[in-house]
């Protein structure tokens, strides 16, 4: 990447694969993922950092890709919903019916996946704190909470 240009070449690592893109520094990571890399799992919702539908995992932590520039992601490990395969939280979402229309589901799953990886012993308070980052228009919060608790070490006993 070159400092100071209106169009720059960015080396991204998305789903364990190196990807080279040409982008405006003003482009969000969400835009580049969807429009340049064809990874449409991260959803545009509010485009304002409110709804969480665009959540991806970056270096292990959930990030809203609508409030991150693609240039900020250079050299960092980005995982989108397309990068998850048959993970415990994906199976739990299916088993617990933790989705209705599905639009928020990729964002919720990425956030829950990061929670499970980082805080497998999360308390109810921590689970609530993390899940409040995402909005489900169909209001399927109870099922989503049950899904993540069924995977967490501490959650299994409280269901």
């Amino acid at each position: 990447m070159r400092d100071g240009a209106h169009v720059v070449k960015i080396e991204l690592y998305v789903n364990r694969e190196g990807r080279s893109v040409v982008a405006r520094p003003a482009d969000t990571l969400l835009h580049i993922l969807r429009e340049e890399l064809g990874l449409t799992g991260a959803k545009p919702g509010c485009n304002n950092g409110d709804c969480g539908a665009c959540t991806v995992v970056m270096d292990g932590w959930p990030m809203k890709s609508c409030i991150m520039l693609a240039v900020e992601a250079a050299g960092r490990q980005v995982t989108t919903i397309e990068g998850l395969r048959d993970t415990p939280i994906q199976r739990a979402f299916a088993e617990k019916w933790a989705f209705q229309c599905g639009y928020c589901t990729p964002g919720f799953i990425m956030n829950c996946h990061a929670l499970i990886q980082n805080r497998p012993d999360a308390t109810d308070e921590i689970i609530t704190d993390w899940l409040q980052s995402n909005i489900c228009r169909c209001t399927g919060y109870k099922e989503i909470s049950e899904a993540v608790k069924s995977v967490l070490v501490t959650g299994k006993d409280t269901l």
């Binding site: 990447m1 400092d3 100071g4 240009a5 720059v8 405006r24 520094p25 003003a26 969000t28 240039v71």
Partner: peptide
């Protein structure tokens, strides 16, 4: 989408 361009520097 941000409707204007800007340059990006990382000192």
């Amino acid at each position: 989408m941000i409707p204007f361009n800007f340059e990006y520097y990382e000192p």
